[in-house]
Design a protein around this nucleic acid. Structure first.
Lengths: 330, 330
DNA sequence: GTGAAAGCGCTAACAT
DNA sequence: ATGTTAGCGCTTTCAC
């Protein structure tokens, strides 16, 4: 029950060797005579010595910690991203410092500022404008960013949502839908790409797109927007939502309003979250490979830290996953 | 574009004052003459000085970081816990170091070991035996634990699952169910309490309980166990699952097998995860107040760090949330 | 093979 | 009101 934890100094003294010897042996920097090594091992054990990571980090300049900033930990898409990033991190001896910015612009910058001081690098998902991202870059730590950037040249990773949106739309058109609507979320930096994919596809078929915009990417918002979309002058026969969460909320409310899905309306989302399988009808979705995104981002981070050059933009290939919420129209 | 970040020393020199003056002023430890303060402010700005948290932490002994270890970040219960903990942490100037042990005993100890060296305290959710928890306590950092402990006297927080299970069972019995089954998860330290609550209630009504045990607390496991439960000799008329995830999986598979819920079987779970509202039928559940658990845990941690004594066990009151997956039997 | 000593950037007595 | 100085626990040349 000692007041203060044993230090390298204590071990050295107790083992009758120098502090440098202990340090080098423990770090595997150098080998020593068997007698000395055994002695150190024993002393470390009896004293219960554990290195002070802080002191070491101060010298080596590395904390072995990667900061991960996400928008909302309650969103399954982000938990999958974190899961992927975490796996790769752990396999490489790194730990995750998590920051949940709660879809809340206000404190984001100060959170990132604080974060940047305690990590070796940051993996960031954010809705900040590029000018703000520039500020974050100036915090001086390596950054991997989710989503494509215009002016900044940063390592980024994303899913090809344009392709995903195009494919999904193409499928709906092929299945006979003629009145397709998009319940988007224009605050997201991924929204425009989805929209572009849909528009390009529909234009080829000379079909229109009805557009709606949500304020939050949540299920509750999908519910809220439902009557607005379904009880207007022109009811769509297919709806694509910005993400699965919104789609799930929308479907529930649509059913409450008396509509049958997919008979009255086909619904689809993005992300392919796990719960899409368990709602009724099960949800058709564009799988954006969330977990893989996290893995790739962390691998890029680690490569950057190791001084390797990484390609700047990595784009994962999405996959349309068909389920019961969409059907063929005759 | 300097190679190395400016230090306190640089600021002091550039501002023509001593290093201590800068330190004290920046930390608000002491006030100085307006001239000096303005001068320091200006220099800090032009140099872009940002304190090295590591060096500071080494001296103050505080990292302003709390480690949070959870079993699975893909489980909504835990994301809510983290959300709650994170809110309180941020409001108090702390950051979360997250560790996802992935329901994987093997690396858990080494992860916690590593974690303990970089944080001021740890909030832990784990299935470790108490002997192992003792080891973690010996890492020397304050700990707040989720769940009641037998021998160890640690600050802990939990939900009164015994009461929750009792209430839920009571409700089912009142609604006319006579063949109640429990699909448990005996590896969890919360399983026994649930079971005890059900048993105590059923005993009073002189009713039996059929028991099944899952290997993992996932939806997929609920699906897997379904045929085993539903196609045996004695089919239950009500099923309580260890958690909502399992219940959701179970319901899906039961419906696939041709059963109607709740007509053929009432189903209920624990946690009251968000998705329970969106599956069909919507899921009756015992709300364990996940987010509140996280908040309370973090508050206890902060109190402990501040030297305040905290009560050792805090038990939140659960609430039965009735939805469509349970119904009255005549 | 092993050890002495110089810091890493900062805080906190203790001076002045 | 401001400065001097002694470390915090560790890594890392550079000597012996």
């Amino acid at each position: 029950m000692k007041k203060t934890a044993p230090t390298l100094h204590d071990v050295a003294k107790a083992a009758g060797v120098s502090i440098a010897t202990v340090s080098k042996y423990l770090n595997g920097t150098q080998r020593f005579s068997p007698a000395v090594e055994a002695n150190i091992d024993a002393t470390v054990k009896t004293l219960g010595y554990r290195s002070n990571e802080l002191a070491r980090s101060m010298i080596t300049g590395a904390t072995k910690t990667i900061g991960v900033a996400i928008l909302d930990i309650n969103n399954p898409h982000f938990t999958s991203v974190v899961k992927g990033a975490n796996r790769v991190a752990i396999d490489n001896g790194y730990t995750l410092l998590l920051v949940d910015t709660e879809e809340n612009q206000g404190r984001e910058m100060q959170l990132l500022d604080a974060l940047s001081r305690r990590v070796d690098g940051m993996i960031i998902s954010s809705r900040m404008p590029e000018s703000d991202i520039k500020t974050v870059v100036d915090f001086g730590k390596p950054i991997v960013f989710f989503g494509r950037l215009e002016s900044l040249r940063l390592p980024t990773v994303g899913s090809d949502v344009y392709r995903g949106a195009y494919m999904l739309t193409q499928h709906l058109v092929t299945q006979g839908h003629r009145h397709i609507a998009y319940l988007g979320f224009s605050k997201s930096r991924w929204d425009a790409e989805r929209l572009r994919g849909m528009l390009d596809c529909l234009q080829q078929h000379d079909l229109p797109l009805a557009r709606f915009d949500a304020q939050l990417p949540f299920a509750s918002e999908g519910e809220r927007m439902c009557s607005f979309v379904m009880l207007g002058r022109e009811r769509p026969d297919a709806l694509i939502c910005y993400n699965d969460l919104m789609a799930i909320g929308f479907m529930k409310e649509a059913q409450a309003l008396g509509f049958q899905i997919p008979q009255d309306l086909s619904v689809a989302g993005f992300d392919n979250i796990q719960y899409g399988e368990y709602v009724s009808p099960s949800l058709t979705s564009v799988d954006l490979k969330s977990q893989h995104m996290g893995e790739v981002a962390m691998r890029k981070m680690l490569d950057t830290l190791a001084g390797k050059e990484t390609d700047h933009y990595t784009m994962l290939e999405p996959q349309v996953v068909l389920r019961q919420s969409t059907m063929k129209r005759q």
